[in-house]
Write a protein that binds this DNA or RNA. Structure first.
Lengths: 114, 114
DNA sequence: CCCTAAATTGTAAATAATCTACAATTGCAA
DNA sequence: TTGCAATTGTAGATTATTTACAATTTAGGG
């Protein structure tokens, strides 16, 4: 059912987990300007992984995904608040999914071909 | 319409494609210090997506993957050169795979402007 | 041990990117 | 028009990255 090659790429939950990105890259990835990202965060919509105030903001996969989803909805005409409300439930699904996948792959990994 | 939830996470090739990361984040993700990443690049092993000299280096999924693979091999005792040689073939497989997946998933993606 | 080349590391000075905070502007609906 | 949500602008300070030159460590062969 599955080729050995496939495993290599499909899929890198491990990678997604380690993923950390600065605000500039998030802007490039999502198309949402840094200024706007900071604004959303200031409103409590996003929660970046900032270590301490003054230090640069860091975003994980979930954060980036959330930004993308909100942007999509707003492009369709939703207000920020409505978009956030709508995205909230999708994020719950996403989080549960990631959590589940983590449990599967965490116990003892990386004994790959060598 | 076309959104089975499963596809949402599994698998985000689209996301991997847009992914761009700064050198600091790459270091945190891979565990390879920034100084060493620059050294490898200077040797021609890596090719970051730097727009112009003086500007910050940017890395995509393939770059990060390559760094991770090289690091793994070196941790096992390979020299840098040997590790690079070994990784080169794996990267070819990875690239082909990504390319193929791109062809499959690209038509779905719509407006991207702004 | 000595030598050589590979591999890595250190650091200064300049530049790029991000930070916070305060203010201004736009868009829309009542 | 008024009011509020949403966004945008920017100055000045701070953090992160850049290049370049040099020093250090590591592994093998002689």
């Amino acid at each position: 059912m599955e080729k050995p090659e496939k495993k290599e790429l499909a899929f890198d939950y491990d990678f997604l987990n380690k993923l950390i990105v600065g605000i500039g890259e998030v802007a490039k990835i999502t198309g949402v300007p840094t200024r706007q990202i900071r604004y959303w965060e200031e409103k409590g919509i996003l929660h970046s992984l900032t270590e301490e105030v003054g230090k640069n903001r860091r975003y994980d996969y979930q954060n980036i995904k959330k930004i993308l989803l909100i942007k999509e909805l707003m492009d369709e005409g939703f207000t920020l608040e409505a978009a956030v409300r709508k995205v909230e439930t999708r994020m719950k699904v996403l989080n549960e999914m990631l959590e589940k996948l983590n449990l599967d792959s965490s116990p003892e990994d990386s004994q790959e071909d060598r």
